[in-house]
Write a protein that binds this DNA or RNA. Structure first.
Lengths: 214, 214, 214, 214
DNA sequence: CATGAATGAGGATTCATTCAT
DNA sequence: CATGAATGAATCCTCATTCAT
């Protein structure tokens, strides 16, 4: 499992105290929110899919919106890490080339985005119009991408060694993240391609490596 | 005005037959949809902001969803162009370098995304959960990015000349578009930056040029 | 019609702009609130009795509670007058005896309480547990029973002439009002009596006159 | 302790078999019913305040309404006594004057109403809209105020001696009770007064004595 | 064409009551 | 006996849509 995915699982298991009903409810909510969007999902739908009574949903979550937040909470907690953390220990030797750096990042994050596709979709839809949540999300993001984050440190080192172009870290992250999102987004809209996913992943790495070379 | 923006205006003016009330309704809808999202906007809200009676809205648009489609129609019509069209004539000499190519593309599209920010936001929200619209959107997109589109032709020429990496056109467009979207998205979430917008635009061009160089 | 009843009608007609549907809704609400109490009356009940759709109720009154307030408003406006106003002009000569005073008061108020029985009942039920409304009610009551209210003036004159016991006005009003309420309350609980209503009314006047004589 | 209060305590202690949980439940119910009204009090509220599980409430009382009746039962049992009983033994010599009669009555009942303020409030709210309970209440009241009740006997004696006006007993009780209720009600709505409670009590006695003098 | 009152289906939420542990 | 999770009917309220004026 990739490091980020690992983080996520830990976050989820922190909720080990969830009853089975709660899990069913969260699962159903996630699925339906991802499928039809939050607003178009009725609590009756959720109850039906979860196989519980509507009242049961409200016994565990005071409002529908609270249910949404519960669904998003693990992701909200991990997302900033996804942008800021970088686990050098998963590879034997420390990162010494841009190629290594990008490759690690891409593989790790792509899988995460892929596996947690539903959560990401729901979060995206919510961030689009929910100003409050957006603000909160950005703040937690900013608090993570500080100078001493793993990723920042690794990047700075590579910059110092002249292995990465000397642009602000946040811009580099922006390019990287948007390229990754583009990759996943493309799958999402199911655009056909003459290439395999692996080939596209390789080219994505190549694109980033070249783009970020000084 | 940039070529894409030009297209858009033409698309809009094709609706020259719209009464002033209709324009008010569309304008109000766009604003509210972009602000709160489609589902959370009530037709009463729209009528109020447009300064017309609720019945009047329904005189012009049979359903609320039809109103959404009317709001998105111009963008839906132009978006594929944005990905496929490339107006070489706006510069005196034809494009001969990747640098020129990217620069033109970025300037043009960025301004468009910026100016039509609301439409794009509404469309994004809609594409996320509306499968039908998404399919339609993709189809029109595919039909545009055919081999004989301006952009494809220019790219192929540059590839032949060894000035652009030899990746499939759709992948190159994916990288380009996602980088642009990242640029705009960053503004959307109002992340602070130590750089000016101009500086960031220059670096974005540089990133793309390097990334797409063979 | 008694003076107080007159006041009430004026208050009601101030709502001359009510549509017929609104009147039906208010009428039904009043009847049902008086019959079953506010909490036990459902908006569906009201709509059914008023012969309109449930949505129509909410078109006119934003919440069920607002509907309650609309029902009570005229009474809330007039009640304080009932305690404070005293129309000496309805009798040819000014009041010169306690007997005259009490007789006028009793006849007037009793009829009012009798005719507006439903409103009073609903108000009573509401004042019992709704602290806010109670406070508001008391305030408007206090603002009315100031030294220069008709009733206070008349009472003061009679006191000065030694025709009424020299107790604070508010206490005299308390005795009077509670005696009146007892009269009406007795009818409300439908206690049988060997006397006619007229006889009871006469004795009530006699009781008050004696009780308030110096 | 006043005789009526004494009655009440006896009634309450008749429930000596109540477990402590039951007492907590009844206590919480009483408090909440008096505070917010029966309908607006949820069984969850009650359980929470009583410090027991919601199921425990239902183990002791089959329905919420039954709980209400249990809360009101002691008062329902004693209220009629309040109107009918008159304990001459608490004073050494038998009552010989109207003044003595009224004074005893007022002091006794006022304190009772004061101490059992919550119960009275809940009962009042219930009698207002609950026809069945009202009928039951009236019946038990009528059965008590029969010719041989203490109070009736004392009153008849005083009437025979020309010390009390010769009105029907029920009317005299009506006047007395409503005057007492007015006294207590005034405190309930927290009307300010320039007099002390003692002064008001004295004047209330005076008012009744004068009003009931032949 | 424009209006806005009326509609009623549907949705979120509450809560008395039950029952397995 | 006590518990508290589960239930689902009932309730308040919203809102897209219709239609008579």
């Amino acid at each position: 499992m990739t490091p980020i995915q690992e983080f996520f699982k830990q976050e989820m298991s922190r909720r080990g105290d969830l009853t089975s009903k709660q899990k069913q409810i969260l699962e159903a909510s996630l699925t339906l929110f991802a499928e039809k969007g939050f607003e178009k999902t009725s609590t009756a739908d959720i109850a039906a899919m979860a196989g519980v009574a509507e009242g049961t949903v409200y016994r565990h979550y005071k409002t529908k919106r609270e249910l949404l937040l519960a669904v998003l909470a693990p992701l909200m907690a991990v997302m900033p890490n996804m942008v800021a953390e970088f686990d050098e220990n998963t590879v034997r030797k420390p990162i010494t080339t841009l190629q290594e750096f990008v490759q690690n990042l891409v593989r790790d994050r792509l899988e995460f985005l892929d596996v947690n596709y539903k959560e990401v979709k729901v979060l995206a839809g919510e961030l689009l119009f929910n100003t409050d949540l957006r603000r909160e999300f950005i703040n937690s993001l900013l608090s993570k991408t500080e100078v001493f984050s793993d990723l920042t440190k690794t990047l700075d080192r590579l910059k110092a060694e002249g292995k990465v172009v000397d642009w602000p870290t946040d811009l580099i992250l922006q390019f990287t993240l948007s390229t990754l999102i583009g990759f996943v987004g493309r799958q999402f809209i199911e655009l056909p391609s003459e290439l395999t996913k692996d080939q596209r992943e390789k080219m994505t790495v190549a694109f980033l490596v070249k783009g970020l070379t000084p």
